[in-house]
Amino acid sequence: MIEVNDIHKSFGDSKILKGITTVFDKGKTNLIIGQSGSGKTVFLKTLLGLYTPEQGSIVYDGRNYSDLSSDEKSDLRAEMGMVFQGSALFDSMTIAENVMFPLRMFTKQSKSEMQDRVDLVLKRVNLGDAHKKLPSEASGGMQKRVAIARAIVNKPKYLFCDEPNSGLDPRTATVIDNLIQEITQEYDITTIINTHDMNSVMEIGEKIVFLKDGLKEWEGSNKNIFKTDNEAVTGFVYSSDLFKRVQKMYLEEDL
């Protein structure tokens, strides 16, 4: 579980996060949504410890990040897995080497133990036969699955995903969404996904935090996002005709 209390973050004169308070639950897929420029990426990078907030606290299962020593912060980061928007795979390494990288850096496992773990994780993301490929030889969907495999190989407690299905076709995007949700439940980890994809919201949004202009505008789940009368949320959700029809369907179901 990650508790966020009154987080503020600025770059120069520009205030990006203006006091966000929320809780991300363990074993659930928590989604951060909002329009471009709403502060989603800065919020996610602040949760990852890449940005230091000027005010507020972030507590990871009882550990307040700002109170931790440098070594404790490193240990905490080793418990985090991250899937970047562009996958961020290391170009010079094969897919297997990319996935093995966190194990080489943070564990004292023998090479065969690491290899077994890599095989297991790559099979889990349906890439059992792609070990020797370079990232440049893999499709966008494959790269995302490798990034997920790398993020979970060291059994993280926290999984962060920045727009994991951007640039993917709808079918592959659904595969990635489902894979993340399955892994979250299987490993019982706290997963936070930054997205503006409404299909993801519908599919896996067990908890949703909606940001607007650096503030939390609304929070809830995919079950009740279509019922909210918050104008900012409805403006975002029903920006396409398809979702207007979905809303109508939901309301009819309720009646």
Partner: peptide, 17 residues
């Protein structure tokens, strides 16, 4: 620089490296 642009450096930092 390419590693910076493609977030590979962010990936290293997130891992605590």
């Amino acid at each position: 620089g390419t590693m910076r642009v493609t977030e590979q450096i962010d990936a290293l930092e997130v891992m605590g490296i």
